[in-house]
C-alpha cells in the first residue's frame, strides 16, 4: 500500500501478543476490518532471515485466500515453510498466498 492512510493493527491471532513472520493479524484499513498475514517485518530477525525497512502485510479473507492478485515486495523464503505448517486440509489454505508472490529473497 503505497498511498493513503496506512493500515493499523488491532489484533494478533497468537498467544504472545507480538506479531512475528507468518502470523495472522486483524487490521483497520480504509474504515474496514480486514485480516492479513505478516510477510515482512522491521524487527531484528534471526540470522539468514531478511529484515525489511517496513512492516509488510498481505490481506486475506477467512479462508486464507489473498484479496489482491499480486505481491510487489519480495517475500522471505522461510514463509513457504511457515505457511505450509499453518495450512490444514479443512482449515485455512495459504498456498495461494505463496503462489502469487513475485519474488523470494
Amino acid at each position: 500500500m503505497l498511498e493513503g492512510k496506512p493500515p493499523r493493527c488491532i489484533h494478533i491471532y497468537n498467544k504472545v501478543g507480538v506479531g512475528y513472520i507468518g502470523d495472522r493479524i486483524l487490521v483497520a484499513i480504509c474504515g474496514e476490518k480486514k485480516k492479513g498475514i505478516l510477510v515482512g517485518l522491521k524487527q531484528v530477525q534471526a540470522p539468514k532471515v531478511p529484515k525489511f525497512d517496513t512492516n509488510n502485510l498481505v490481506l486475506i479473507d477467512d479462508n486464507g485466500t489473498p484479496l489482491g492478485t499480486r505481491i510487489q515486495v519480495p517475500i522471505p523464503h522461510i514463509l513457504r515453510t511457515k505457511m505450509k505448517e499453518k495450512t490444514h486440509s479443512k482449515g485455512a489454505d495459504y498456498t495461494k498466498l505463496i503462489a502469487i508472490a513475485s519474488r523470494f529473497i
Binding site: K48, F52, D53, V73, S102
Partner: peptide, 17 residues
C-alpha cells in the same frame, strides 16, 4: 534494496550453511 524495498540480512561468518 530490491523492488524498492530495503532488505537487510545478518549472516554468521562461520555458519556451516
Amino acid at each position: 534494496i530490491v523492488d524498492n524495498q530495503g532488505i537487510e540480512v545478518c549472516y554468521e561468518l562461520y555458519d556451516p550453511a
